[in-house]
């Protein structure tokens, strides 16, 4: 057990042969991946490829149909007994994924609470933190994402970018070991994308372990340690940004990237097309 001696090499997330079916539709068809501490993994792929489903399975927001997902060495959602598997209790699911933070495409803030309450309430309810301490931590987290001046605002009074930053602060307040981002900028107006990506860049540079489902190829190229291209429920390509964006010749990947570049060209000058 060489792995046991060097705990840092043990992956935070270990996905082994995971399948996900919705009725007869097979969305994930045997996914294997590992995410190590302080790594940033970006998951790209066409819509409907299963990339969001994969992230939701890792958070156990969806029950995976087959395979195993380990979070810091513990099996998520099921217990294995004499050849079969059994769904464990909600409390046990909570325990295993207590160090997993999740950021949603649609923010999913609670609209009847201020930004501060959105961040502080989970600390009080699930960590039993006293009110004062929870408020102090919440304020610090909102300052970290650049919203120290908007703590009393309600979600409806905030821009999309601000709402998403509250969503990130809310997840960070729980001191997660890994942050999962499910298309965090896809619901935002283009001019608000940058502020959210900047917060995520800062997090990555602080050493946060992150898995990001995204359409922001620029972010993936600059920040990711590993880029995974998912297509039709399998990981069709995986490697460093350079390997995936430039070297890998998988035809589906090349087609996907070609479509992306064409969509983002906005000026045809005399020197030819300008890539982003």
């Amino acid at each position: 057990m060489a792995e046991e001696k060097t705990p840092n090499s043990r992956p935070i997330i270990d996905v082994r042969g995971v399948w996900k079916r919705f009725g007869s539709a097979e969305v994930l068809k045997g996914i294997d991946l590992q995410i190590k501490k302080s790594e940033v993994t970006c998951i790209i792929g066409p819509s409907g490829s299963g990339k969001s489903t994969l992230l939701r399975c890792i958070a156990f927001l969806e029950e995976y149909s087959e395979g195993e997902i380990y979070i810091e060495g513990e099996l998520l959602g099921f217990s294995l007994e004499n050849g079969g598997r059994r769904r464990v209790s909600d409390a046990e699911v909570d325990r295993v994924r207590r160090n997993v933070g999740f950021v949603f495409q649609q923010f999913n803030l609670w609209p009847h609470m201020s930004a501060l309450e959105n961040v502080a309430m989970p600390l009080k309810l699930s960590r039993g933190m006293p009110r004062e301490e929870a408020a102090r931590r919440a304020r610090a987290m909102l300052e970290k994402v650049g919203l120290g001046h908007r703590t009393q605002a309600y979600p409806s009074q905030l821009s999309g970018g601000q709402q998403q930053r509250v969503g990130i602060a809310r997840a960070l307040a729980m001191e997660p070991h890994i942050m999962l981002f499910d298309e965090p900028t896809s619901a935002l107006d283009p001019e608000l994308v940058g502020e959210v990506l900047q917060v995520m860049r800062d997090l990555a540079s602080e050493g946060m372990t992150m898995a990001v489902v995204t359409h922001e190829m620029g972010f993936a190229a600059q920040v990711a340690d590993t880029v995974m291209f998912i297509d039709h429920g399998i990981i069709a390509a995986s490697g460093s940004p350079n390997e995936v964006f430039r070297e890998n010749q998988n035809s589906r990947l090349r087609q996907f990237l070609q479509n992306y570049f064409e969509r983002n060209v906005f000026w045809q000058g005399s020197e030819g097309a300008a890539a982003p």
Partner: peptide
């Protein structure tokens, strides 16, 4: 989605009823 967010924060289903669903 609001309930999923609360579940990801480790808040129990009953506490979600009380603090997220009922007030809204």
């Amino acid at each position: 989605g609001q309930i999923e967010a609360a579940r990801m924060m480790g808040i129990s289903r009953l506490a979600i009823v009380r603090h997220v669903q009922l007030p809204q």
